[in-house]
Design a protein around this nucleic acid. Sequence first.
DNA 1: CCTTTAATAGTCAGTACGACTATAAAGAGG
DNA 2: CCTCTTTATAGTCGTACTGACTATTAAAGG
Lengths: 239, 239
Amino acid sequence: MRGYDKHAFEPFAVTVDLAVLTLRAGALHVLLVERGQEPYAGRWALPGGFLLPEESAETAARRELAEETGLADVTGLHLEQLRTYSEPGRDPRMRVVSVAFAALLPGPPEPHAGTDAAEARWVPYEKAGPLAFDHDRILADARTRVGAKLEYTCLATAFCPAEFTLGELQQVYEAVWGTPLDRPNFRRKVLATPGFVEPVPGAARLTGGRGKPAALYRAGTATALNPPLLRPSREGRPA
Amino acid sequence: MRGYDKHAFEPFAVTVDLAVLTLRAGALHVLLVERGQEPYAGRWALPGGFLLPEESAETAARRELAEETGLADVTGLHLEQLRTYSEPGRDPRMRVVSVAFAALLPGPPEPHAGTDAAEARWVPYEKAGPLAFDHDRILADARTRVGAKLEYTCLATAFCPAEFTLGELQQVYEAVWGTPLDRPNFRRKVLATPGFVEPVPGAARLTGGRGKPAALYRAGTATALNPPLLRPSREGRPA
DNA sequence: CCTTTAATAGTCAGTACGACTATAAAGAGG
DNA sequence: CCTCTTTATAGTCGTACTGACTATTAAAGG
């Protein structure tokens, strides 16, 4: 804050950009909007918009999330601030500083009917081609951050509906990490972590197709995983 | 980015705030500046300042870091973006959006001679009383983030000079976590992690006082710790 | 009725880690 | 010079956790 009171300062435009992630059919998807105007006309981009004068970035992000997804109630959805992107050239028209967020939706959400003009679509993460601005980087950062937080927090339940099976929870990990996991081991680890999930009491069971019906669980009260649930080591361990 | 081209937008002042951390005599210290003017005149605050028109937040943070510490070369110092604070009321004078950073300095740095007017001082983390604005929160977030990254990255070496002993490295963990660690176990873990540290070849040894002289190590090439070095569990494990 | 599919149960060995004890190499003080 | 203190380093032991498996159960489909 030095020089705060005596020097002139430059005003900046401040926006929020959202990487809205969800699981559809076991695959990670991201919500994208198509740009109608230059620059990057016709390219897909992350949803976002300007901060209003009396809004925090978190408030603006939640407002944009509601507008873009068309969901009536976005309270309770997990919103995570990623970082702020401020390189001078990131928007060719003017100086824009953007606060990026990741939002996690329980799937599968409706095909989406935006309240606004711009078209919005769920796109598989892998096929989210070159995006406008620096949104490729923001999207990659979102996946990296969410993947890391899956290891040591209970964040995975944010992708699941109120009641879910352990198989669905495992799909979250597999989709975000891009790695298959051993089912018995995953189950053992999740159940051994106090407060991660709790069984739905009424011996309730869900049947989606063939196979033995799975027990239902709810998110527990814990927020941290201790010890963490580490992904299969990226660097090859010695055989 | 919806509405990007058609709606008016509010300009904001954008600043960076820095939590500059280091170790002095085994204790975590933070660099603070005393405010000369209202609001919060006489209170201590984190150093920081406005973004210049052609600067990214990272560039501005490194510039402020050089100015405030008086260090000739701040390249190579670890700078970590924490998050952006944008609550409307955080500065009583005007709407200010601040991108916060944590900077890690190898200790012990000189008592500090700022190039600027404002007085700057190293203050033990625990005694960094109520700070101006929302800087208490930023400082707490900095410690939380750094403490977490110590667990699964090689960040601790950023607090150490080019060559250091394992005892010094352990002091980093103990100061940031506020927990004593078992020395043999710490040593075993660090040496067992490939690429974390590498011995200085010339059988070099350092003597600081009494006791057996310790071997010197350099930071290795690894950036991630796999498996992580977990702190003694916060939640009490069953006996 | 048999096959397929998915959930759940259980085994087993290797690794990692917490809690220790023991030894080595320096300085300080008599 | 000898001993005490201090710090670094070496090693031990038992438990917890995990990865890689195999086995069983309960549904759907033909």
